[in-house]
């Protein structure tokens, strides 16, 4: 098992466990875990996972299943957002 930090922002923040601080929670993942299995395991709809960063680096949709997550990684996810 490994522990990663999952950060859910904007409207996805409502899916965090109660008591989460700074939009973050710790998640235990098994061997072979990927960004895709993390998203599925947390029950996040794919359509709401528009922007996914692992340690700040963008992970395209078609790379999520092939991107492993490891101990200490920070996975940050946003729904479609805009600003300026």
């Amino acid at each position: 098992m490994a522990t990663v930090t999952l950060k859910l922002f904007a409207l996805l923040g409502a899916r965090l466990p109660p008591g989460s601080v700074a939009n973050a929670t710790s998640v235990a993942v098994g061997e072979g875990a990927t960004v895709a299995t993390l998203i599925a395991g947390f029950g996040l709809p794919d359509k709401d996972c528009h922007l996914v960063l692992v340690n700040g680096a963008f992970i395209p949709v078609d790379s999520r299943a092939a991107t492993p997550v490891a101990e200490g990684d920070v996975v940050s996810i946003w729904p479609p957002i805009g600003g300026g």
Binding site: F9, A10, L11, W78, P79, P80, I81, G82, G83, G84
Partner: peptide, 11 residues
Amino acid sequence: QGLPKYGTQVL
């Protein structure tokens, strides 16, 4: 949804 709820500050 995003801009009404969080404004530009979501960035």
